[in-house]
Every structure is written in C-alpha cells, then in structure tokens.
Nucleic acid binder design. Structure first.
Lengths: 333, 333
DNA sequence: TTGTAGGCGTTATCAC
DNA sequence: GTGATAACGCCTACAA
C-alpha cells in the first residue's frame, strides 16, 4: 500500500496525498477528509526509506556510549531517549567499548546511517590530555553531522559539549574531608578520561590549598567493581589512609566492603565519598555520601541544544553544569 | 558523492560500481581494484536510504523495553546490541514505560521505521493472565515483522519467546528456605507481569508441597526501590515473617535495610532471597543470595534465533532457559 | 564481464 | 487547490 494506491482510491493525485500526509495548508478541508479516510481505512504508513531518500533524513539521532550496562550511561541513554522522542526523533544505539580503535570504528559505522546528529556519552570520548586529545576522529565526524558530547569537552567546528564541573565538585568534596580532620585521602579511580582527570585536579587543588602534600602512593587505579576494589585494598595492608575519594560509586562501595573486612568504623576511622549518586549509593551500609553530577540535566540540555542547532539557531558550544554533593552517612562533615 | 560520480571517475557504469560495492563475483579483479581505489579516495559511502528503499531493509532491529535505566534491562540491551552488531545489524531503542497504552504506541511507532525484526525486553509485554493477555497488539505487529520476546511468552504466528524458567527457580529457592526451617515467607514483588506471576506460582507451589498455608497477608506489592521497601516494611510492624522472597534485588536490598533498622540478624532472624543477580546484590551487607536468570544467555539465544528466522530457517517458537541460584550470605541453606 | 533502463515511494517544483 | 513530473541514489533484470 503506497502513495499511488491511496491516490487512486481517493481519486486524487499523489501530490495531493503527499500534501495531506504532511498536513500542508493548501489542500481543501474536503479533500483532506476524503484522503484521510482512505488512509485510515487501509492503514497506510508513508515509507520512511523513500522519505529519507528525498529529505536526506530519517529523524534519527545516533547515540554512542562505551557500555550501556553501566548504570550511569544507562540512565543517560534513558534520559536522552525520552527527550529525543518528545521531539519526534528516534535513537540508534551503539556501544563502542573503551578502546580507541573501537570508538573510532563505532563513529565511522554510525555515520554511515546518515543520522541527523551524534551524541557521545561519557568522558572517554574527550581524550586524555589537553594537547593530544586523540579526538580528531570526532572533529572529522563533525564535518558530516553535528556532534554532542555529554560530560566531556572537545573544541572544534560543529561539536558541542555539555559537562559537569567535576573539578569544582571534587575540590569541595575533598575540602570537606580535610576540614573535618582527614590527612591522608586516597584518590580512587578507574580511568584517565577527561572527567576523571578533572576530578584528580580538584582533589590535588584541595590538598594543596589546605597545605597537605600530594602523594603518588595515595592515587590508586582500579576496576569499577565492588569486590575488585575491596580485595585490592585488602592486599595493600601497608597503605595508610583515613579517607577515600572515589570517582565512581562502585569503587566507593568496594571501599565500604574493605572497611567492614578490616573492622574499620565508617566514618570515624574511614571517611568515603563516591561519585554519580547511583542506586548503589543507597544499597551499602552505611549509605554513601556521593557527588550527583546531575545526569538528567546534562542530557536534557544536550537535546534541547541539539534541536536548536538542527533548526539553524546559534548555540553555545560549551555548557558547564554544577554538581551537587549528596551527604549521607560515610562522611562526618 | 554518489554512485554516478564514482562510476564516472572510474570510467565504468553505475551497475559495475554497485557490483563492486556488494562484492559481486562477476566483476573482473582489475575493475574491482580500480573502482575500489576511486571509492577510497573519495571516501564514498553508499546511501543507506536509497539502498533501504530498494531492498526494503536497512538492517536495523527495533528494541523496546519499558526502561533502560533499570539494571536488568540495561544489561539485556547491552548484550543484544553486541550480538546484533556481530551480525551487522543496528539497533533502534525505544523505552516504552509500563503502561499498556504507551507500550502499544511504542510498537506502532517503531514499526513505521520498517525494522527487520522487533525485540521486546521484559515480561511486561507478555501480559497478565493466560486468557486475556492483552498482547493482541503484539500479534498484530508480528504480521508485519518477526517479534522476539525476552523473558515472556506469547503464542502466535511469527512471534518467538525465550524465557527463563522462573517458576522452577522460585520453587527451589523457596523450598530451600522452608527446608532450613522458615515458616512465614513473605513474597515481595513490584509487578503482575508474566514472569512475576510465574515466580508467584513457584512460591505457592513450594509452600503447598511442604504443607505450609498460602496466606494473602504474606504477599506484598511494592515499588522496586530500596528505601521504599524498607519503609513500607517498617510501617507494618504487625506483619510477622522470618524470610523474604523478592522478585528483584532492589526490593531484597530494601529488606536488608529493614532488618538493619529493626536490629534483626540476617540470616538467623530473617532469610532473604533476591532476583536477577545484579550489581546491587553484592553491595549490601550481608550480600544477597539471589537468582541469576542468565540474561546473557537469553539475549544471545534470541539474536541467534532471529538470524535464522531472517534467513528463512525454521526455529522453535519457544525456548525455556534454566535459572541458577547464587548462594551468598542472606540465607542459611 | 559490462552497460542500459526501470523500479523502489517519497517530496518538491512547476504549471494550470 | 490540484496534477504532472523530475529528482533522490541504489539494485537488478535484461541485453550486449
């Protein structure tokens, strides 16, 4: 059942049917009714491929994230999908993994789908250092379609970044711990991504501004898995620390487990702050103090921005969003 | 840059270019080389819309789930996406919510995209009772494209179901608790979906076969949120139970919190079993005994099956998969 | 082995 | 207000 069939049945031309489909004003109400009736009756649906071919768009946005099974990204994808759908867009999802090669491959493949825009979720896409950010493939992609980063920053034509101010958040979280008497604060992270580095900067600045030394032994990298973190900490008996700032709740919960295993009291003996304010943060005992980086806000702003860009409006290429420290029971300030 | 441009530059016809693109055997190696070179140089990519129009397929699978921010579904989507990509398919994601009307709407909208197949994740799509399963919209969809259910069962032409045997799993979990001396086991659930009902059946069968009464007061419905469950249990001081069988880990963790609040020892005073073996299950203290319903296996089997169906092969319309009880520290059997 | 021509189902630009 | 008709870019008989 195509536009010709409908035209024939309604006794009009395909042009008129097309106009009705697109609700053009220059069709008489009478013929509109007539054509609509025929369409209903035969439950006709315009062929999206044909339409796509003509308009060079299928109203589809590509979303790439390293791993949707990660809570943070799953939530982000959920927010994005909802907001995009409100605007009438569909989502193609691609989970790229964390390796540079796979990320480049993902971008390349998804671009072939002629998406209207591309969203990259997670700071892994923002590269490592400021100089060589390894993000040229993204700038290249931006020549074909607008690119939107969630929680990462890349400068370039046609690329837009919305990110949370992790440096600030880390600074004030760590400052809080220092001001409540902590002297040896462990920085616990699972990555060297853009946002992880920002958190590290905030951590170090807090130490420096409070006159504490920045020690290499107090920076620990691990997998973001509860038991993994617990065990790695248990294995380093010699390492002394009275507080932990983790860049993800999973690692913070691992630290809670470690404290239990060693009989340490939280927060008296060990103060802990997580990141992301995920479900996990209210599962452990005591419940985690954690940084909420307002994923929903980031996502909604990104989509709203995108719609403006697609409409040809001017838009800021860089939007920082403030984090919120959610105080629960693993800190005493 | 389209097929005509490439043809002109390579000094061949568009038919030949098309053959090269599709790696047809009836092109001489020499012209293949030549054409490929030109394509590389201009980094030509065939227009997927045009191809879709001709072939009536864009190699895209629709995935609908009620909510990707839910851990179980996020994992499922992740597994599905990976497997589908191995076969060269893309995924369109749609989060429908749980309301019947929205689910129907989601299916209707995604069908318009002319996907090659549809996957429905979660037993909410399988309806409630055996008689009126409210799934006619799915059978209707199956007239247009093959439909695959993950963890739900619907009978119908062109619909395929892969599901875990939740009745069995619930039966043996609850039996374990009874045999270790529990007499009043609370059934805690957040839904009346197909799989939730199966779990309830298993729970009731275990009680009956062990000579225990099936009591309405011991069936409790709640939201799948840690604090919500804790508070609802605290609010029912009069309710007596010595074990809890929860249909999701989130509610089981809520029960752990409840036990802490009341000073109950786990598992001595209260034995708890969760469901899904999610991240949450190792976050609380003590860690949860839980049922692993092998989501990865369900997903992989679904995709493999789908590929056979798309190739016109015959395939079983119904595949049950066994669950595994993961024993941790909230039970004593 | 290669080329020509028709079809896929729209939208958009003209005329009328 | 409505109707022809030409794109859109690819695939694939059929012909050579």
């Amino acid at each position: 059942m195509n536009i010709y069939d409908i035209a024939k049945l309604a006794g009009v031309s395909i042009a008129t049917v097309s106009r009705v489909v697109n609700d053009s004003p220059r069709v008489s109400e009478k013929t509109k009714q007539k054509v609509r009736a025929v369409m209903e009756e035969n439950d006709y649906t315009p062929n999206v491929f044909a339409r796509g071919l003509g308009l060079d768009s299928m109203k589809t946005i590509g979303i790439i994230c390293p791993d949707v099974s990660d809570t943070y990204m799953a939530r982000a994808v959920s927010f994005l999908e909802h907001r995009l759908r409100e605007y009438g867009y569909d989502c193609i999802l691609y989970c790229s993994g964390y390796q540079q090669e796979k990320k480049e491959n993902a971008v390349e493949l998804i671009l072939k789908k002629r998406i209207d825009a591309l969203i990259l979720v997670g700071s892994t896409y923002a590269g490592h250092s400021e100089e060589d950010d390894g993000a040229d493939y993204i700038r290249e992609a931006a020549k074909k379609t607008p690119v939107f980063l969630i929680n990462g920053k890349i400068t370039g034509e046609n690329v837009y970044s919305v990110y949370s101010t992790d440096e600030d958040a880390a600074y004030s979280a760590v400052s809080g711990m220092i001001e409540s008497g902590r002297k040896r604060i462990l920085y616990l992270s699972d990555s060297h991504s853009y946002s992880a580095n920002k958190k590290l900067e905030g951590y170090e600045r807090a130490l420096r501004e409070h006159g504490l030394p920045v020690l290499g032994e107090l920076k620990l990298y691990a997998k973001n898995q509860v038991h993994y973190v617990r065990d790695i900490l248990l294995a380093r008996r010699a390492l002394v620390f009275d507080a932990v700032f983790a860049t993800d709740d999973g690692m913070a919960v691992g630290t809670v487990k470690y404290a239990h295993a060693r009989g340490l009291k939280i927060p008296e003996d060990l103060s802990i702050i997580g990141y992301n304010n995920s479900e996990l943060s209210v599962c452990c005992e005591p419940e985690l103090t954690t940084v909420d980086n307002t994923g929903e806000k980031l996502c909604n702003m990104t989509v709203d921005n995108m719609m403006k860009v697609l409409n040809g409006e001017e838009v800021s290429q860089e939007i920082p969003v403030k984090c919120i420290l959610v105080k629960r029971c693993t800190t005493d300030f």
